[in-house]
């Protein structure tokens, strides 16, 4: 496996060089591996959005560097290529869709790439099918639910055939059903299409579907590892997570509670399935 995105001693200040300088990222060294699905969590203001915006060159480091597909985002001439590799989906679907009609919005990205017409049509078709929104293709966006709009936004990025899609709290605005559908799509894109996913979220029940997670606080990376490693650690680490304003997945919380009551439950539970297995083994 190779590194798709890598940050090297990345620091970033808003309004750098002025009196109101605000340090948003400090010495961040992380890597996103090809084909994985990785979560970046942290409370509001932890710097996760700022970090994500470095991945496709929307922001460039104050010091340090970011490599996407081996190219540095510091060089202006790389940006166009980098944005073909790393696509980005944002929180509010209404503020990222350009056209009022579903298929026409999906075509916006490929059109920007200057692709031939037949290829654009093919890609739009493929994106519609992959996200299972073919039946809405001619519909105006304001007729769709928020969840469906977010699927359209993902399809719009997918149609550019990126290696990696970065999603900045894509489910924060959605109702439970929309949230479930969008999460399913994201996981499916990773498993079936092999697209690397970077998911920014503060829902721990989404994090557990990820291969790895990064916990951020106050502009730097505090923890890194698989969800099991992060959630099933010592009391000290639990306290730290709590201090950073983060939850535990529901299954872990339930397992911990049962353990406290004296039940013989495994301590490395994050998925509902694992909890059920463990409960079934109780005598």
């Amino acid at each position: 496996m190779n590194k798709l995105i890598e940050t090297i001693n990345l620091s970033y200040c808003y309004k750098a060089g002025t009196k109101e300088e605000v340090k948003a990222l400090e010495d961040v060294n992380i890597a996103v591996w090809q084909g994985e699905i990785i979560a970046i969590t942290g409370q509001n203001g932890s710097g996760k959005s700022t970090l994500a915006r470095h991945f496709n060159g929307l922001l460039t480091p104050t010091t340090g560097s970011v490599l996407a597909g081996g190219m540095s985002t510091n060089l202006k001439e790389n940006i166009r290529e980098i944005r073909k590799i790393v696509g980005m989906v944002f929180q509010n679907p209404d503020n990222q869709l350009v056209s009022s009609i579903v298929e026409e919005d999906i075509a916006f990205g490929p059109e920007n790439l200057g692709l031939p017409q037949t290829e654009i049509i093919e890609r739009v078709e493929w994106a519609l099918n992959t996200l299972k929104i073919e039946e809405h293709r001619r519909e105006p966006l304001h007729n769709l639910s928020e969840g469906q709009k977010q699927q359209v936004a993902i399809a719009g990025v997918l149609a550019m055939k990126p290696d990696c899609i970065v999603l900045d709290e894509p489910t924060a605005h959605l109702d439970p059903r929309g949230r479930r559908d969008v999460l399913e799509s994201i996981v499916r894109l990773n498993r079936e299409e092999g697209i690397t996913i970077v998911l920014l979220t503060h829902f721990m029940n989404e994090v557990i579907y990820c291969d790895r997670m990064i916990v951020m606080d106050q502009g730097s990376v505090k923890m890194q590892g698989t969800p099991h490693q992060i959630f099933c650690q010592s009391e000290h680490q639990k306290e730290q997570l709590h201090k950073m304003g983060l939850d535990y997945p529901v299954a872990s919380q339930l397992a911990a509670g049962l353990k406290l009551e004296g039940f013989d439950i495994a301590t490395d539970i994050i998925h509902t399935k694992e909890l059920i297995n463990s409960l079934c083994q109780l005598k």
């Binding site: 920007n112 692709l115 049509i121």
Partner: peptide, 13 residues
């Protein structure tokens, strides 16, 4: 981030 850089170089569906 969807590569819009103005009208130049765009094609049409």
């Amino acid at each position: 981030s969807r590569s819009y850089t103005g009208g130049k170089g765009r094609t049409k569906m």
